[in-house]
Design a protein around this nucleic acid. Structure first.
Length: 1167
RNA sequence: GGGCUUGUAGCUCAGGUGGUUAGAGCGCUACACUGAUAAUGUAGAGGUCCGUGGUUCGAGUCCACGCAGGCCCA
């Protein structure tokens, strides 16, 4: 069986499609899993994509990263089941449907029923599934597409319910409120998506107030009063752009590390002298002092003022704030102050008031503007809410007519009646009332006036800033407390942090930084979404909220419905087929029911139409919220198996994941929800290793977008370059966690440089192996000990490569693995091993040496195929099959490592460390460097490589270098076309040495003196160097101090050979003997002739193995002499059976080289 | 505004624990080579290592403060 040969250039895309077809026909992916049955499992979780849009090139990136390690672990012998999945719920799908239908959320239930709307979502979400499946296959991402989990399926939702119930039973699910953007005019909460619509942020001019909060004198504040002195009242100043929130104030926040001052100043409205606390850097901004000159001029007009200037100075001085003390924010924490809008002034009391009105820390406090102290109203700010919660500060809530607690602003945007003189007033103009009257005051203005009057305002002014507005009503947004269901993640915060430390993050900083910080600042997980297409919250409540039930399964729901039917709260059980109805009637039914398709649908609206009965007999209604879609995806370790309803064993076997990978944008998404649920439900991590990959940008580093037209089409890319070059480029170019600048030119380069070289190497092997009808065997091989230096070298390198690449894959660094493989293939294997071994492959009979060359190259190619298989699975397969198909039958019969039909079914070779010969690798590097230096010298002397030279000289300072180079002398000679390598040592007396200070050592030893010592070393004389070498030490005197240098303090190297042309590379020096003898000249001529004849052969279209007869014109004596001396050589090289001279060469061509013009006739020898 | 991250040649990237002359590939220029040939070799041009301070005998590397890009979150 011959090795397949291919035309140059290879069609890599074709390789992809051919191999893909072969995989599919032979079920290779399935076998890669089934053949590992009974082996340890490597658990991988597929983060489900959403198929409502077309896949992009970044998906190729993300899925390549996923695929690599699953394939690698399979090569290690593990079983890697890979269940696919689809994320099907969520806002993007709703928005897409709304856009297509031309409706808004408000139309749902009016223009379109929830049922039809959800049906539309269901159809939309899988619209691009075919494209996704196609891409998945074409790019070679191995994942089970036949049995994916789908988040909208009832089993999946049921699992989510079961998990929610578990959390509920643990007391981790509760109803509370959270501060969200809210539009009073529209009466609805706004998503961050809606808030990010263009044009929502507008510049508005608002009344702003710097409020004075009067400090209570007690132990905590004593130091302030002591510093203020004179029985001055002490106030804390806080600035707000929303004065209407001041009556809801319950705390003040300071930055712990911010510097604050206590300063005496005058209140500009009451002219009362007060001591105020404010951030140090903001004091001068806050208190504006009039200009003395201007004030004096003004006072001159006043006849009562006797000395205007003196008076002006006195006034300004009295107004200028005086700093009397300084504090850190941390010193202020705990200080109490008096409520601004107290009960005594007609404002409502509230629960927990005794814990309110304290100074608390807040990490969001800045000194950008304001006072460096932030007024906190927990009901009207997200930061406020969080900081207050952490400091146990209550919110100011007042009861409504039903006794239900709520904020001081109602849902329409006006103050509740209890708000004293301001009761019932609009916070902002949400009803469009007339504002044109001369006496018209906004609520903010009224509050400002009141505060100026009663001395609680230090400053009021109009201020322009940007503020978000509702995109529908154009009215300002309120940050407002809205009901929500929460998962109490804060209860397990410490455990989340602790277990996170056991996860191997790539890159590490994402785990410690972005994710770690996120955990440190954890708040409870807000589960509620006021939407339609998603997993419904399985909680039913009585109207008054006193009784509730959390449903954990369909069976439980059925049972509860039965109770409700018995209690006559429901007429029938929609989950059960009515006993009376026949299948036909059901099919005819116009009214779709939850089980009309024979499958229970747990979505809205069906679950909304289910009412249950409470233990006390009250009807219970479902809480209308859906849950955050992130819960869906975070629940996939459980729900993909329909666990905990069933498949407990399967779940146990596949939890936690050994490995997951997604984009870094998932940090607070999937990475978090997986982790949180695993910790709360299983007290375990959900994944042990995780790669957070970066973005794919265009070649200029810009985000790809369809709008800008810079998006790369993944299908076109795969079709053009094939999947392997595309994948290889993405991985080799930058680590996955860095952003990738995708440049198609880079893919071309990878294709040419790496795949092209590898393909050439294979072609080279195939060509000559076929000529010799050689087929490598796994058994009958030339023993390793009998291999040539070069063979053993490349095999040593190969073993080192296996070690290195395994290490990189093991530590989830595919980029380093790819780079190591690429460097080996291009630099070592192709450009050194093959180049130097060329003639062994095509010269003469199939000797042991030739076989050794074939076998060595075969081993390298097969191992490379294995190593690259995770990254370039198609090409690796192609290479493996080409290299080993011919040995398969025997391999199968004897069950050897090459028995598997696919490289992806093999077991990755272990590095044979006994074959790693570091000394050999080292001396080969010497050979490479000496060759390079010699080439450089030839170039300088204008002596082409074809001209043989007598010798090169290599100065050696120690015996081991001499020995090392000696062993590779033949290789060097062949490579650079010289007859000998000669060594020069000290005894020759011609070496000129130089010395280089070892700064690292000297610095540690001499520190500051290093400079002078180093300079002195560089001035060392040859005699001193000799002395240092002989005695091992040298005493020198610099600037009056003596230093004893040892050989370790310097590096001695040869630098020059007087009279020779030399080249140096670090410690290596090479000189070239450029003397040409007649014999060398003749050999040079012979080589030229060989070269021209080879070209002629090639130009004449001869096959490599064709034999020829050559006739040369004999006019030139030198040429004749050369041919006579080197006739055998020429005949062998050109495969000439005859090489004759003739006076007249008819029908030939003329070869031109050097000074010769040689007529020549070349005939194919028929026998 | 906060957290994380990146910044080294025209481009893509390397540069353990600080060591004086900062590298590779591609691209460019020139020359050579040519049974691997859309390959290869040699040489050359090309750098304020983002900036400013600091620590140190010595900083691309450590520290601080900035600038610019990116992501996430407000």
């Amino acid at each position: 069986m011959k090795y397949p040969e291919f035309k140059q250039p290879l069609n890599y895309a074709q390789v992809g499609t051919d191999i893909l077809k072969w995989w599919q026909e032979n079920g290779i992916f399935e076998k890669s899993v089934s053949s590992r049955e009974g082996q340890p499992t490597f658990v991988f979780y597929e983060g489900p994509p959403s198929a409502n849009g077309a896949p992009g090139i970044h998906h190729v990136m993300a899925r390549t990263v996923k695929d690599i390690f699953c394939r690698y672990q399979t090569l290690l012998g593990k079983q890697v089941p890979r269940k696919g999945g689809w994320d099907t719920h969520g806002l993007p799908i709703e928005l897409q449907v709304e856009k297509e239908l031309g409706i808004t959320k408000e139309d749902i239930g009016k223009k379109i029923s929830i049922e039809d709307y959800n049906q539309r979502c269901r159809e939309t979400v899988m619209r691009f599934k075919a494209q996704w499946d196609d891409l998945t296959q074409k790019m070679g991402y191995w994942v089970d597409l036949n049995d994916p989990y789908i988040t909208f399926e009832p089993e999946y939702i049921e699992s989510c319910w079961a998990l929610l119930k578990k959390l509920y039973d643990k007391g981790l699910l509760y109803k509370g409120y959270t501060i969200q953007p809210y539009s009073p005019a529209a009466g609805t909460g706004l998503s961050s998506h809606e808030l990010n619509q263009p044009g929502t942020y507008k510049d508005v001019k608002d009344t702003t107030i710097v409020a004075q909060f009067k400090v209570t004198q007690d132990e905590a504040s004593e130091k302030l009063f002591a510093a203020a002195g004179d029985d001055l009242p002490v106030h804390i100043l806080a600035w707000t752009t929303t004065p209407w929130t001041l009556p809801a104030n319950t705390a003040l926040a300071v930055g712990k590390n911010i510097d604050y001052v206590l300063a005496t100043a005058e209140n500009p409205y009451t002219h009362q002298k007060v001591a105020v606390v404010v951030a140090k850097v903001l004091l001068d901004k806050l208190v504006t002092v009039p200009n003395v000159g201007a004030l004096a001029k003004q006072l001159e007009k006043d006849p009562l003022v006797q000395d205007p200037l003196k008076q002006a100075i006195a006034t300004v001085e009295s107004m200028r704030p005086k700093v009397v003390a300084e504090f850190k924010g941390a010193d202020l924490v705990g200080i109490h102050y008096e409520r601004l809008f107290g009960q005594d002034q007609g404002f409502p009391a509230f629960e927990g008031e005794e814990r309110a009105f304290r100074v608390i820390p807040g990490d969001f406090v800045t000194t950008e503007d304001g006072t460096g102290i932030v007024h906190i109203s927990p009901t009207f700010g997200a930061d406020d809410f969080r900081a207050a919660q952490q400091a146990d500060i209550p919110a100011l809530l007042v009861p409504d007519a039903d006794g239900k607690l709520g904020p001081i602003v109602d849902r329409t945007g006006r103050y509740v009646p209890q708000m004293g003189e301001f009761g019932g007033r609009w916070v902002k103009n949400y009803d469009g009332h007339d504002q044109s009257g001369a006496d018209y005051k906004t609520l903010d203005e009224s509050i400002a006036i009141r505060m100026r009057t009663n001395g609680t305002a230090f400053k009021t002014e109009k201020y322009e800033h940007t503020y978000p507005h509702c995109w529908r009503t154009d009215k300002p947004v309120l940050y407002y407390p809205l009901d929500s269901w929460f998962i109490k993640t804060t209860a397990v915060k410490d455990r989340l942090i602790e277990l996170n430390k056991t996860i191997n993050w790539k890159p590490e900083s994402t785990g410690t930084g972005r994710f770690g910080n996120w955990l440190e600042n954890l708040v409870d997980w807000n589960l509620s979404r006021s939407r339609y297409w998603g997993t419904p919250l399985p909680i039913w409540r009585t109207q008054d909220g006193t009784e509730e039930i959390c449903i954990g399964s369909i069976a439980e729901l059925e049972a509860e419905i039965e109770k409700a039917v018995a209690a006559e709260i429901m007429t029938h059980n929609p989950l059960r087929k009515p006993a009376s109805s026949s299948p036909n009637e059901e099919a005819d039914s116009q009214q779709p029911t939850a089980n009309s398709s024979n499958k229970i649908d747990l979505h809205r609206p069906y679950v909304d139409d289910i009412f249950l009965v409470s233990p006390s007999g009250q009807p219970m209604y479902r809480e209308t919220d859906l849950i955050d879609v992130w819960f869906d995806s975070g629940a996939m370790p459980y729900a993909q198996w329909h666990y905990p309803i069933e498949n407990a064993e399967k779940f146990q076997k596949n939890f936690p994941a050994d490995y997951i990978a997604e984009g870094v944008d998932q940090t607070r998404g999937w990475f978090f929800t997986l982790h949180a649920l695993a910790v709360m439900l299983e007290d375990s991590v959900a994944y042990k290793n995780v790669i957070a990959n970066g973005l794919v940008l265009d070649k200029n580093g810009n985000k790809m977008s369809k709008r800008l037209g810079n998006a790369i089409d993944p299908f076109a890319t795969l079709a053009q370059f094939g999947p392997d070059a595309t994948r290889w480029y993405m991985i080799v170019n930058a680590p996955p966690w860095d952003n990738l600048k995708f440049d198609p030119a880079g893919v071309t380069e990878v294709q040419r440089r790496f795949f092209g070289t590898l393909f050439n190497t294979y072609s080279f092997y195939a060509l000559y192996a076929n000529l010799d009808e050689f087929q490598t065997s796994e058994f009958d091989r030339v023993p390793h000990a009998e291999l040539s230096e070069l063979d053993r070298w490349v095999l040593s390198k190969l073993q080192s490569l296996v070690l290195e690449v395994r290490g990189h894959y093991d530590s989830y660094d595919p980029t380093k693995a790819a780079r190591a493989i690429q460097d080996f293939v291009t630099d070592q294997l192709s450009n050194w091993y093959v180049r130097l071994s060329r003639r062994r492959f095509w010269k003469g009979e199939l000797t042991a040496d030739k076989r050794a060359a074939f076998e060595t190259l075969q081993e390298c190619l097969v191992v490379v195929a294995q190593l690259m298989a995770p990254i370039a699975p198609f090409f690796a397969e192609w290479l493996y099959k080409n290299m080993t198909d011919g040995m398969r039958a025997e391999a199968v019969a004897k069950n050897t490592p090459l028995a598997p039909e696919s490289v992806h079914l093999t077991l990755l070779v272990e590095a044979n460390e006994a074959r790693i010969d570091k000394a050999l690798e080292e001396r080969m590097e010497l050979a490479q460097r000496i060759s390079s230096l010699t080439h450089s010298l030839r170039k300088k002397s204008v002596l082409k490589v074809r001209q043989p030279l007598q010798r090169i000289l290599v100065p050696v300072l120690n015996e081991s270098t001499r020995e090392q180079v000696g062993k590779v002398e033949d290789l060097i000679c062949a490579e650079v076309n010289v007859k000998h390598v000669e060594f020069l040592d000290d005894t020759s007396g011609v070496l000129v040495k130089s010395v280089k200070p070892n700064f690292k050592r000297l610095g540690q030893q001499y520190g500051p003196k290093l400079k002078v010592v180093g300079a002195r070393i560089q001035q060392m004389t040859p005699e001193e160097i000799t002395q240092l070498e002989k005695l091992g030490s040298l005493t020198v005197e610099v600037e009056g101090e003596t230093y004893t240098l040892t050989t370790d303090d310097v590096e001695i190297r040869t630098q020059d050979l007087p009279g020779w042309l030399v080249a140096t590379d670090g410690p290596l020096t090479v000189a070239l003997d450029v003397t040409l003898t007649d014999e060398l000249r003749q050999e040079g001529v012979a080589r030229e002739l060989v070269n021209r004849l080879q070209n002629l052969r090639k130009d004449s279209g001869l096959e490599v193995q064709d034999k020829i007869r050559v006739t040369l014109g004999n006019q030139q004596p030198e040429l004749t002499a050369a041919v006579q001396s080197f006739g055998d050589y020429i005949r062998t090289e050109t495969q000439a059976l005859a090489l004759d001279f003739a006076a007249d060469v008819n029908g030939g061509v003329v070869l031109e080289f050097d000074d010769y013009n040689v007529p020549v006739r070349l005939e194919v020898a028929t026998s």
